[in-house]
């Protein structure tokens, strides 16, 4: 059973300079966005979930495993994290080998690893690049490869750290589709992201971090209703939502389609 439980979690490098303070949280099958300014503690939180960092106090349980005691390599079988910069992980000279590296590490038999890797490449639309050298691809294509390399590990939980950076329109659409596909397959998807339009279009739940604490947590629509709180946290609203507020004060519109439907009523 997939589960993520965070209990009164705190983290710091220096005690007088806390990064996360007393965070309690559970996740579910809803696609979840974590937003907040740089330095709010988003990346630290997901590194703690992955077991890459250990809590200073409090605890985190992933699928009934205590992250304080289980090794990162073992946790890697349950929870995948796509790093911001694909260059931080790519080292194989063929795309398919790169994608298969994680699956083999977490103990998938070779046949299964090949199938999972091909499916993952298919999902990100890179199946025809499987024999290319990753460094012959563009940065945004390498990002898609790094996404596939995590998906192929077939973990219950997939976390993305800023997946849309340096992606153009087509790349963003692909990533949006990947997130929906994963959710349909029963995976839990958590994403750190700055792009508010993308948040509004893609995620069911949104968590706002500010100064190491949870400022807001709710459905994406509820969150974007808290206009003033968001602005105070240095965040902005999706463009379509801004126009919605200008026209009708208290209605939160999240997508262009919604806006059009409302206008035609």
């Amino acid at each position: 059973m997939t589960s993520i439980t965070v209990k009164s979690l705190s983290f710091y490098y220096k005690k007088e300079d806390p990064i996360l303070t007393d965070i309690s949280l559970t996740f579910d099958q809803r696609t979840t966005a974590i937003i907040g300014q740089n330095g709010a503690g988003k990346t630290t939180l997901v590194k703690l979930l992955k077991g890459l960092l250990k809590p200073a106090s409090g605890e985190i349980w992933i699928n009934d495993q205590d992250t304080r005691v289980v090794s990162v390599a073992k946790l890697a079988g349950y929870i995948g994290l796509v790093f911001q910069n694909p260059n931080d992980q790519i080292f194989k000279s063929k795309v398919i080998d790169e994608v298969m590296f994680g699956p083999l590490n977490v103990g998938q038999p070779k046949e299964e690893a090949i199938t999972n890797s091909m499916n993952a490449l298919l999902m990100v639309g890179m199946e025809d690049k499987k024999d290319d050298h990753p460094y012959d691809l563009s940065l945004s294509e390498r990002k898609l490869i790094s996404i596939a390399s995590i998906i192929a590990m077939n973990t219950d939980i997939v976390i993305f750290d800023e997946p849309t950076i340096a992606q153009d329109y087509a790349g963003k659409e692909t990533i949006k589709r990947v997130i929906h596909d994963l959710q349909k397959k029963g995976k839990w998807v958590i994403t750190i992201i700055h792009d508010m339009d993308f948040v509004a279009e893609t995620f069911a739940r949104t968590i706002v971090l500010a100064n190491g604490k949870i400022l807001l947590d709710g459905t994406t629509r509820e969150i974007f209703l808290q206009k003033d709180v968001l602005v105070q946290a240095g965040l902005n609203l999706p463009h379509v939502t801004q126009l919605g507020y200008l026209l009708e004060k208290n209605k939160t519109v999240l997508t262009i389609d919604e806006f059009i439907k409302d206008s035609k009523l």
């Binding site: 300014q37 740089n38 950076i165 340096a166 700055h194 508010m196 240095g234 965040l235 902005n236």
Partner: peptide, 13 residues
């Protein structure tokens, strides 16, 4: 050349 692509909304602004 894409000076804001790696920044948060506040930094972009």
């Amino acid at each position: 050349d894409e000076p804001t692509s790696q920044l948060d909304p506040k930094g972009t602004e």
